Computed example of a mutant assay.
Amino acid sequence: MKAFGRLLWKDLELSRLPMLINGVAAILWQLFLRTRLQQGWPAEAVAALLFLPMAFLPLWFVWQTYQSLRTEWREDTIYTLLALPVPGWKITLSKLTALLIEYTVVVGIWALGGLVIYWSPLSTLVAELFQGITLSWFIRNGFLLYLMSLGVFASFIIYMQVAYITAKVVGRFHGLVLLWVLLLQGWVVDTVGTVLQPVFAWLPSIPLHRLFNLDQVPRAFMDSSQVLWDLSGSIGSWLAFAGLFFLGAWLLENFVEVN
C-alpha cells in the first residue's frame, strides 16, 4: 500500500500544474460568459458555450494519459519503476487514479465555480422548473452522473495506456501501432459485450427514470419512462475493460524494454 501511495503521489505531482491551469481557465471562461450574459447575449447561447469546454475533456485526458507514460521514458524514470519490486498493475493503476483525481478536481472547480458565478440566474430558473424538488435530489443525481462520467473517462485512459504500452513492446512504427491498437480495443470491447450479453441476460434492465427519480420532476423535458439501461450488455464491456487494464499492466511488467 505504501508503494502504491508513493507512486500515486508522484503521478499527482505531474498533474498539479494541469489541474491548476484547467481550473483557472474554467473560472475565467465562466466569468467571461457571465459578463456576456449581462450584456444581453441569449441565455441559450451562453449555456451552450458554458458546457463547450467539457466536450474536449475526453481528448484532454487521452493526451494526459499519453504524456504521463511518455514522461517516464523521456526522463528515464521508467528504469526505476521497472526495477522496483512493484507489480505492473500498481504502476498503471496509480496513473489511472491520478488522472481521475485530476478530472474530479477540474469538474469540481467547474461545477462549484458555475454555481457561485451563475447563482442569481440559476436560482430563478430552478425555482420555475423544479418546484418542490429537494436539494438531496440534485446532489444524488449529480453524484450518479459524476460516477458515470468517471467510468467513461477511466475507459479512455485505459485505452491509451494499453495502446502506448503495446507500441513500446512492438518498438517500431510507434504512432501507427498506437493508433491501430486504439481502434482494435474499441472493437474488442464491443465484441466481448455482445458475446457475453446472453450470459448476463438474466439481469433486469434498470429504468432510468427510477434510477434518477425523475418522477419527482413536475415538468420533465422528455418522457424517459421507457428508457432502460441494459445491464447484460454493459457487464460484458466492463469485463473487457478490466481485461484490457490487466493486459496493459502485464505487458508493462513483463515485455517492455527500456529504450
Rank of each mutant, 00 (worst) to 15 (best):
I206H: 02
A127S: 12
M160N: 07
Y118W: 14
A55K: 07
W29F: 11
F138G: 08
K168D: 10
V188L: 13
A201I: 00
L122G: 05
L37W: 07
L203Y: 00
L244P: 08
M19P: 03
Y79K: 05
V126R: 09
L49W: 13
L115M: 14
L82P: 01
D230C: 02
G108N: 07
P85G: 07
Q38V: 06
R36I: 02
P218T: 10
S205F: 02
Y66E: 14
S136I: 06
V106Y: 00
L8W: 03
Q185W: 01
S136E: 11
L147R: 08
W9N: 14
Y146C: 01
L112E: 07
K90L: 05
A242N: 04
D223Q: 02
E128I: 12
L184H: 09
T92R: 02
G114K: 06
D11Y: 00
F241R: 10
F212T: 11
S15L: 03
G40K: 01
L84M: 09
L57E: 13
L129K: 15
I157L: 11
L96A: 06
W60D: 02
L14A: 12
A249L: 06
A48Y: 10
L99H: 06
S237A: 12
W238L: 11
V192Q: 05
M1E: 03
V199W: 05
Y146P: 01
N213R: 15
L14S: 14
V170C: 02
I158V: 11
F56S: 14
Y66H: 15
F241D: 03
F4T: 04
K10A: 15
I157M: 07
H174V: 07
K168H: 14
M54Q: 14
E75F: 09
F245A: 07
L244D: 00
T71Q: 15
R172D: 09
R172C: 01
L239W: 04
L8P: 03
W63L: 11
G132I: 04
K2W: 02
T92E: 00
M160R: 10
E257F: 00
L81D: 10
L17Q: 06
R6N: 08
D215I: 09
G108E: 05
L228K: 04
W89L: 04
L135I: 10
G5C: 06
S234T: 12
R210Q: 13
Q39W: 13
Y118T: 11
I78E: 04
Y79W: 08
L145R: 04
E102A: 04
V199C: 03
R6M: 03
G88R: 01
G175E: 13
S234L: 15
L247G: 14
A25S: 06
T191H: 10
V116C: 08
Q39F: 10
D190F: 06
I235N: 10
R70L: 05
G171F: 09
V181R: 14
A111V: 14
Y103H: 08
I27H: 06
A43E: 07
L99Y: 09
P121C: 00
I165W: 05
W9V: 07
V258F: 06
S225H: 07
Y66C: 08
N22E: 07
L14W: 15
M54V: 12
V105K: 03
Q197D: 04
Q64L: 12
